[in-house]
Protein backbone atom coordinates (compact mmCIF):
# COMPACT_ATOMS: atom_id res chain seq x y z
CA UNK A 1 0.00 0.00 0.00
CA UNK A 2 2.84 2.36 0.90
CA UNK A 3 4.43 1.55 -2.42
CA UNK A 4 1.26 2.48 -4.26
CA UNK A 5 1.15 5.89 -2.61
CA UNK A 6 4.86 6.31 -3.20
CA UNK A 7 4.36 5.45 -6.85
CA UNK A 8 1.56 7.93 -7.19
CA UNK A 9 3.68 10.60 -5.51
CA UNK A 10 6.58 9.78 -7.78
CA UNK A 11 4.31 10.03 -10.84
CA UNK A 12 3.13 13.50 -9.86
CA UNK A 13 6.68 14.48 -8.99
CA UNK A 14 7.94 13.29 -12.37
CA UNK A 15 5.25 15.18 -14.22
CA UNK A 16 5.78 18.39 -12.26
CA UNK A 17 9.56 18.27 -12.55
CA UNK A 18 9.06 18.18 -16.32
CA UNK A 19 11.83 15.63 -16.82
CA UNK A 20 12.35 15.76 -20.60
CA UNK A 21 13.20 12.07 -20.69
CA UNK A 22 9.76 11.10 -19.36
CA UNK A 23 8.08 13.24 -21.98
CA UNK A 24 10.28 11.82 -24.68
CA UNK A 25 9.39 8.26 -23.66
CA UNK A 26 5.67 9.04 -23.43
CA UNK A 27 5.75 10.86 -26.75
CA UNK A 28 7.52 7.99 -28.48
CA UNK A 29 5.01 5.53 -27.01
CA UNK A 30 2.13 7.59 -28.36
CA UNK A 31 3.77 8.08 -31.73
CA UNK A 32 4.66 4.44 -32.24
CA UNK A 33 1.31 3.06 -31.03
CA UNK A 34 -0.80 5.49 -33.04
CA UNK A 35 1.19 4.92 -36.20
CA UNK A 36 0.83 1.17 -35.80
CA UNK A 37 -2.90 1.39 -35.14
CA UNK A 38 -3.43 3.79 -38.02
CA UNK A 39 -1.64 1.53 -40.48
CA UNK A 40 -3.45 -1.52 -39.14
CA UNK A 41 -6.76 0.30 -39.45
CA UNK A 42 -6.19 1.45 -43.02
CA UNK A 43 -5.18 -2.03 -44.11
CA UNK A 44 -7.33 -4.01 -41.71
CA UNK A 45 -10.75 -2.49 -42.31
CA UNK A 46 -10.78 -2.87 -46.11
CA UNK A 47 -9.35 -6.36 -45.76
CA UNK A 48 -12.00 -7.21 -43.17
CA UNK A 49 -14.76 -5.84 -45.43
CA UNK A 50 -13.59 -7.94 -48.39
CA UNK A 51 -13.19 -11.03 -46.26
CA UNK A 52 -16.59 -10.51 -44.67
CA UNK A 53 -18.60 -9.78 -47.81
CA UNK A 54 -17.02 -11.78 -50.58
CA UNK A 55 -16.84 -15.53 -50.42
CA UNK A 56 -14.08 -17.24 -52.35
CA UNK A 57 -12.46 -20.66 -52.19
CA UNK A 58 -10.11 -20.90 -49.22
CA UNK A 59 -11.85 -18.15 -47.32
CA UNK A 60 -12.34 -20.32 -44.27
CA UNK A 61 -8.65 -21.14 -44.22
CA UNK A 62 -7.74 -17.45 -44.40
CA UNK A 63 -10.16 -16.84 -41.53
CA UNK A 64 -8.46 -19.52 -39.45
CA UNK A 65 -5.09 -17.84 -40.04
CA UNK A 66 -6.52 -14.44 -39.09
CA UNK A 67 -8.08 -15.87 -35.96
CA UNK A 68 -4.79 -17.47 -34.91
CA UNK A 69 -3.13 -14.15 -35.62
CA UNK A 70 -5.48 -12.48 -33.16
CA UNK A 71 -3.71 -14.40 -30.42
CA UNK A 72 -0.21 -14.15 -31.88
CA UNK A 73 2.14 -13.86 -28.90
CA UNK A 74 4.12 -10.62 -29.17
CA UNK A 75 7.38 -12.43 -28.43
CA UNK A 76 6.76 -14.64 -31.46
CA UNK A 77 6.12 -11.56 -33.59
CA UNK A 78 9.25 -10.01 -32.08
CA UNK A 79 11.39 -13.04 -32.82
CA UNK A 80 10.22 -13.23 -36.44
CA UNK A 81 10.83 -9.56 -37.05
CA UNK A 82 14.22 -9.71 -35.36
CA UNK A 83 15.29 -12.48 -37.70
CA UNK A 84 13.92 -10.59 -40.68
CA UNK A 85 15.79 -7.42 -39.77
CA UNK A 86 19.07 -8.94 -38.62
CA UNK A 87 22.11 -7.82 -40.54
CA UNK A 88 22.33 -11.37 -41.82
CA UNK A 89 18.57 -11.48 -42.49
CA UNK A 90 16.70 -10.66 -45.71
CA UNK A 91 16.17 -6.98 -44.80
CA UNK A 92 19.50 -6.62 -43.04
CA UNK A 93 20.97 -4.02 -45.36
CA UNK A 94 18.42 -1.39 -44.26
CA UNK A 95 19.62 -1.51 -40.63
CA UNK A 96 16.12 -1.22 -39.25
CA UNK A 97 16.59 -3.35 -36.16
CA UNK A 98 16.63 -1.41 -32.88
CA UNK A 99 14.67 1.48 -34.39
CA UNK A 100 11.13 2.76 -33.70
CA UNK A 101 10.26 1.50 -37.18
CA UNK A 102 10.94 -2.07 -36.05
CA UNK A 103 8.63 -1.62 -33.06
CA UNK A 104 5.91 -0.29 -35.34
CA UNK A 105 6.33 -3.32 -37.59
CA UNK A 106 5.92 -5.70 -34.66
CA UNK A 107 2.90 -3.82 -33.38
CA UNK A 108 1.25 -3.90 -36.79
CA UNK A 109 1.86 -7.62 -36.94
CA UNK A 110 0.00 -8.18 -33.65
CA UNK A 111 -2.81 -5.65 -34.16
CA UNK A 112 -3.64 -6.18 -37.83
CA UNK A 113 -5.23 -9.63 -37.38
CA UNK A 114 -7.44 -8.27 -34.58
CA UNK A 115 -8.74 -5.44 -36.75
CA UNK A 116 -9.25 -7.66 -39.80
CA UNK A 117 -10.87 -10.43 -37.77
CA UNK A 118 -13.31 -8.25 -35.84
CA UNK A 119 -14.25 -6.16 -38.90
CA UNK A 120 -14.83 -9.30 -40.90
CA UNK A 121 -17.12 -10.85 -38.28
CA UNK A 122 -19.12 -7.63 -38.13
CA UNK A 123 -19.71 -7.73 -41.87
CA UNK A 124 -20.54 -11.41 -41.85
CA UNK A 125 -23.35 -10.69 -39.39
CA UNK A 126 -25.10 -8.27 -41.71
CA UNK A 127 -28.55 -9.50 -42.64
CA UNK A 128 -28.79 -10.96 -46.15
CA UNK A 129 -32.16 -9.27 -46.60
CA UNK A 130 -30.66 -5.87 -46.05
CA UNK A 131 -28.01 -6.56 -48.64
CA UNK A 132 -30.73 -7.52 -51.13
CA UNK A 133 -32.71 -4.44 -50.30
CA UNK A 134 -29.71 -2.16 -50.84
CA UNK A 135 -29.01 -3.84 -54.16
CA UNK A 136 -32.62 -3.61 -55.26
CA UNK A 137 -32.56 0.13 -54.64
CA UNK A 138 -29.83 0.29 -57.24
CA UNK A 139 -26.86 1.18 -55.07
CA UNK A 140 -23.42 0.91 -56.62
CA UNK A 141 -20.84 -1.28 -54.96
CA UNK A 142 -19.13 1.65 -53.31
CA UNK A 143 -22.43 3.01 -52.03
CA UNK A 144 -23.30 -0.41 -50.65
CA UNK A 145 -20.06 -0.64 -48.73
CA UNK A 146 -20.53 2.93 -47.49
CA UNK A 147 -23.99 2.11 -46.16
CA UNK A 148 -22.82 -1.08 -44.54
CA UNK A 149 -19.85 0.59 -42.86
CA UNK A 150 -22.27 3.04 -41.27
CA UNK A 151 -24.41 0.10 -40.20
CA UNK A 152 -21.56 -1.65 -38.37
CA UNK A 153 -19.70 1.46 -37.22
CA UNK A 154 -19.82 0.39 -33.59
CA UNK A 155 -18.25 -2.97 -34.33
CA UNK A 156 -15.55 -1.44 -36.54
CA UNK A 157 -14.56 1.01 -33.85
CA UNK A 158 -14.56 -1.81 -31.34
CA UNK A 159 -12.03 -3.50 -33.62
CA UNK A 160 -9.86 -0.38 -33.67
CA UNK A 161 -10.09 -0.03 -29.89
CA UNK A 162 -9.09 -3.67 -29.42
CA UNK A 163 -6.19 -3.16 -31.82
CA UNK A 164 -5.05 -0.11 -29.93
CA UNK A 165 -5.28 -2.01 -26.65
CA UNK A 166 -3.05 -4.70 -28.02
CA UNK A 167 -0.49 -2.21 -29.27
CA UNK A 168 -0.24 -0.01 -26.20
CA UNK A 169 0.09 -3.06 -23.93
CA UNK A 170 2.77 -4.68 -26.02
CA UNK A 171 6.19 -5.17 -24.42
CA UNK A 172 7.82 -8.45 -25.45
CA UNK A 173 8.30 -7.56 -29.09
CA UNK A 174 9.18 -3.94 -28.40
CA UNK A 175 11.95 -5.12 -26.11
CA UNK A 176 13.36 -7.55 -28.69
CA UNK A 177 13.17 -5.47 -31.83
CA UNK A 178 13.58 -2.06 -30.20
CA UNK A 179 16.24 -2.97 -27.67
CA UNK A 180 15.00 -0.42 -25.10
CA UNK A 181 17.67 2.07 -26.20
CA UNK A 182 17.67 5.25 -24.17
CA UNK A 183 16.44 8.20 -26.20
CA UNK A 184 15.68 6.08 -29.25
CA UNK A 185 13.46 3.09 -28.68
CA UNK A 186 12.60 3.27 -25.00
CA UNK A 187 8.83 3.27 -24.64
CA UNK A 188 6.69 3.20 -21.50
CA UNK A 189 6.24 -0.57 -21.32
CA UNK A 190 9.92 -1.37 -21.86
CA UNK A 191 10.97 1.27 -19.32
CA UNK A 192 8.65 -0.33 -16.79
CA UNK A 193 10.33 -3.70 -17.33
CA UNK A 194 13.74 -2.07 -16.98
CA UNK A 195 12.88 -0.11 -13.85
CA UNK A 196 11.49 -3.27 -12.24
CA UNK A 197 14.69 -5.13 -13.00
CA UNK A 198 16.64 -2.25 -11.49
CA UNK A 199 14.49 -2.51 -8.38
CA UNK A 200 13.03 0.99 -8.80
CA UNK A 201 9.48 -0.03 -8.09
CA UNK A 202 8.31 3.51 -7.38
CA UNK A 203 9.47 4.74 -10.78
CA UNK A 204 7.96 1.66 -12.43
CA UNK A 205 4.64 2.33 -10.74
CA UNK A 206 4.75 5.99 -11.71
CA UNK A 207 5.34 4.99 -15.33
CA UNK A 208 2.48 2.53 -15.13
CA UNK A 209 0.14 5.33 -14.06
CA UNK A 210 1.38 7.39 -16.95
CA UNK A 211 0.80 4.51 -19.38
CA UNK A 212 -2.70 3.92 -18.08
CA UNK A 213 -3.55 7.61 -18.33
CA UNK A 214 -2.41 7.58 -21.93
CA UNK A 215 -4.45 4.45 -22.67
CA UNK A 216 -7.44 6.01 -20.94
CA UNK A 217 -7.17 9.22 -22.95
CA UNK A 218 -7.02 7.50 -26.33
CA UNK A 219 -9.68 4.94 -25.48
CA UNK A 220 -11.89 7.75 -24.19
CA UNK A 221 -11.67 9.52 -27.54
CA UNK A 222 -12.28 6.35 -29.52
CA UNK A 223 -15.20 5.28 -27.35
CA UNK A 224 -16.79 8.71 -27.72
CA UNK A 225 -16.42 8.41 -31.44
CA UNK A 226 -17.97 4.97 -31.30
CA UNK A 227 -20.96 5.95 -29.17
CA UNK A 228 -21.87 9.17 -31.03
CA UNK A 229 -25.22 9.02 -32.75
Amino acid sequence: MDLLIEGLKKAIEMLISGDPEIFEITWLTLKVSLTAVLVSTFIGIPAGVILGLISFPGRRFVLILINIGMGLPPVVAGLWITMLLWRSGPLGSFSLLYSPFAIIMAQILVSLPIIIGLTCSAFQQIDEKMLLQIKSLGATRLQTVGLLVREVKIAILAAVIAGFGRVIAEVGAAMMVGGNIRGETRILTTSIVMEVSKGNFDVALALSFLLMSLAFFITFLLTNLQQRN
Binding site: L34, L38, L221, L225, R228
Partner: peptide
Protein backbone atom coordinates in the same frame (compact mmCIF):
# COMPACT_ATOMS: atom_id res chain seq x y z
CA UNK B 1 -22.41 16.16 -36.53
CA UNK B 2 -21.10 12.66 -36.37
CA UNK B 3 -19.29 13.02 -39.66
CA UNK B 4 -17.77 16.30 -38.65
CA UNK B 5 -16.64 14.78 -35.39
CA UNK B 6 -15.10 11.75 -37.10
CA UNK B 7 -13.37 13.91 -39.64
CA UNK B 8 -11.98 16.21 -36.99
CA UNK B 9 -10.72 13.19 -35.06
CA UNK B 10 -8.92 11.88 -38.11
CA UNK B 11 -7.58 15.33 -38.87
CA UNK B 12 -6.30 15.57 -35.32
CA UNK B 13 -4.57 12.20 -35.58
CA UNK B 14 -2.96 13.13 -38.86
CA UNK B 15 -1.92 16.44 -37.40
CA UNK B 16 -0.36 14.64 -34.46
CA UNK B 17 1.49 12.27 -36.74
Amino acid sequence: LKQIFSLSMIAMLIFMM
